[in-house]
Amino acid sequence: MALRITASCVNCWACAPLCPSDAIRAARPHFQIDPGRCSECAGDYEEAQCASICPIEGAILDACGVPLNPPGSLTGIPPERLAAARAEIQAR
């Protein structure tokens, strides 16, 4: 069982030093979790450390591929508002 980092990662380094299993690598184009090392923090912390500090919604997925920080959960911006604003800006 391991978490996974997606392409929306902004390489902010917040997660890497917190990982108790030294499983996170500063790879390119984005950070990566070594699935062989990741323990999902079991035995060390109640909450997966990487997913608890990551500022980007959707950047970290659980073992089933579900985002641990879904849209709107970190910024408080409702996804519909974000989509509407994007469309608005593109139409300018």
Binding site: N11, C12, W13, A14, P17, I53, P55, I56, T75
Partner: peptide, 14 residues
């Protein structure tokens, strides 16, 4: 110093 430990509503970490 790339990492941050809080989120502010005037900031977009992207």
């Amino acid at each position: 110093a790339p990492a941050c430990n809080i989120q502010c509503h005037y900031c977009n970490r992207k």
